[in-house]
Structures are given as C-alpha cells and as structure tokens.
C-alpha cells in the first residue's frame, strides 16, 4: 500500500567549495505528507534545491517512480511531475496573477486538464480569482504565497514540494493553508514539506525527517518524534 514515490539516497551537495549536505537520505510515500524540519541553516532548502535540480547534486541518487532522475534538469523534472514552491516564493512579479498560473501549467502534462485545474485552484483560493489581473509583485505576502502554491498545483504535479510555507504569514492564514494541503492530500497528492514551525509540521505530517548540520538527525512518525526528549528540548521548546 505504501509505495515510495520519491527516494533520496546519500545526497551530498553544496555551493562552490562549501559542502552543505553530507549524505541525506529520505523517502516520500505516495499520497502522504512528508515533513522535513531542522534549525536555520541545517540544509533543508539545499536538500529541496538538489531534489528539484536547481543546484546539481555532488553525490547520491534521486529516484522517482523507481527511475534515476538525479541528472535531469529542473525543467525536465517539472515535466516528470515535480513542483517546487520555493523559499521566498519566486513569483513572476512583473506578470499578472493569471499569467503566473498559466506559466505554472507550462509542462505538456498540464495542458490536458488546464481548465479543470484552474477551477480547482480558484476553489482553493477564491481570493486569487478576484486578483487575476493584478501584477503578482503587488500582492500581499499571504496572497503571494497563495499564488506560489497555486502555480505549483497548475502543473498537475505528482509531488508538491513546499519550502517554508508558513514563513511570514498570519496564523489564521497558515491554518487555512494547512487545511488546503490536507484537502489536496485527501485527493491523492504527495506532499514534501519543509517547515520552520515544528509543532505544525508534526501535527499535519504522516512522517517526518529531522535534519541537523547537513545530516539526517532522526526520522519517524510524528508521535514517535514528539516523544523523543532531544526533539522536545531542541525543536519543540518543551
């Protein structure tokens, strides 16, 4: 039943001469929400970048549906079904909301169900339907985050990878967005989530990984992790 969609084995990566990741291994099960947590600078964003291909992995393998996709370029991975909602949103700020969504559906795999997808996204984020003609760069932070997630969904992805969804957003909105993720998961989407807020991450995920200093510190079901004394002390402030 629990089929692994994405598998990362011994991932090493860095910037220039500086190695950041020292052998990270993790797996995302189809239809599950998998969380990655860790302190600032632990290497969470770097892990996601290496998975999505915006930086090249130095060593290790990335398997997707059993195929080795380590060396595929970022746009090829998008075509395969990866969607990364990057840290800092990275919207097309000088283009309209509608154009951002349309570009989200750039992969050929997204062309078939375009109208359906757009409906779905506007049902999830009614606010965006009203703001279609507005330039993305002029939206509020929360609205921009909605566009970022919606743009990721427009590609009809197999796996939605989100970096720091809650950063800088009001608690109400964070709560709403997590409700949205739950709904998406219920219709079968696989989600890999990096989250600052460890309480929240453990509350919504099916499985979680803790990264520290570029290595896997521990992993487990949320209940197991929140029972561990070192996690309670270092990440949950208990």
């Amino acid at each position: 039943m629990s089929e692994t969609l994405l598998k990362v084995e011994g991932l090493e990566a860095g910037y220039g001469e500086v190695q950041v990741l020292w052998g990270v291994s993790l797996a995302a099960v189809r239809g599950h929400l998998t969380a990655i947590v860790g302190a600032n600078g632990a290497g969470k964003t770097t892990t996601l970048r290496a998975i999505a291909g915006t930086i090249a992995p130095w060593r290790g393998r990335i398997l997707f549906e059993g195929d080795d996709v380590t060396r595929l370029s970022t746009h090829e991975k998008a075509e395969r079904g990866f969607a990364l909602v990057p840290e800092g949103r990275q919207l097309f700020t000088t283009m309209t909301v509608a154009e951002n969504l349309e570009l989200g559906a750039f992969p050929k795999r997204a062309a078939r169900a375009y109208a359906e997808r757009l409906d779905q996204v506007f049902t999830l984020f009614p606010r965006l339907a009203e703001r279609q003609r507005q330039l993305a760069g002029t939206l509020s932070g929360g609205e921009q985050q909605m566009v970022a997630i919606a743009r990721g969904l427009m590609s009809n992805p197999d796996i939605l990878i989100i970096d720091e969804m809650s950063l800088g957003l009001a608690p109400v909105l964070v709560y709403q967005l997590f409700q949205t993720l739950k709904k998406l998961k219920d219709v079968g989407l696989t989600i890999l989530l990096v989250e600052q807020n460890v309480h929240l991450a453990l509350a919504v995920s099916d499985y979680a990984y803790v990264i520290a200093e570029g290595k896997l510190f521990t992993e487990g079901r949320p209940a197991e992790l929140s029972a561990m004394p070192e996690i309670r002390r270092a990440y949950l402030g208990l």
Binding site: A52, G53, T54, S73, T74, H75, A78, E79, A83, L84, P86, Q90, L91, F92, T93, T94, M95, E99, E102, L103, G104, F106, P107, R151, S155
Partner: peptide, 24 residues
C-alpha cells in the same frame, strides 16, 4: 503566445521559469 510568455518569465526570474518547466 505561450512561448512569448515563457520569454517574459525567463526575463523576470530564470530560476522560477526552470521550476515551472520552461527550458530556459
């Protein structure tokens, strides 16, 4: 056009353009 919008997307943010599947 779809391709023209891709050109503008690359002009605006090349990394994001790659992420949405544009061969930049």
């Amino acid at each position: 056009s779809r391709t023209g919008k891709a050109v503008r997307a690359v002009a605006n943010n090349r990394e994001a353009a790659e992420l949405v599947g544009i061969p930049t």
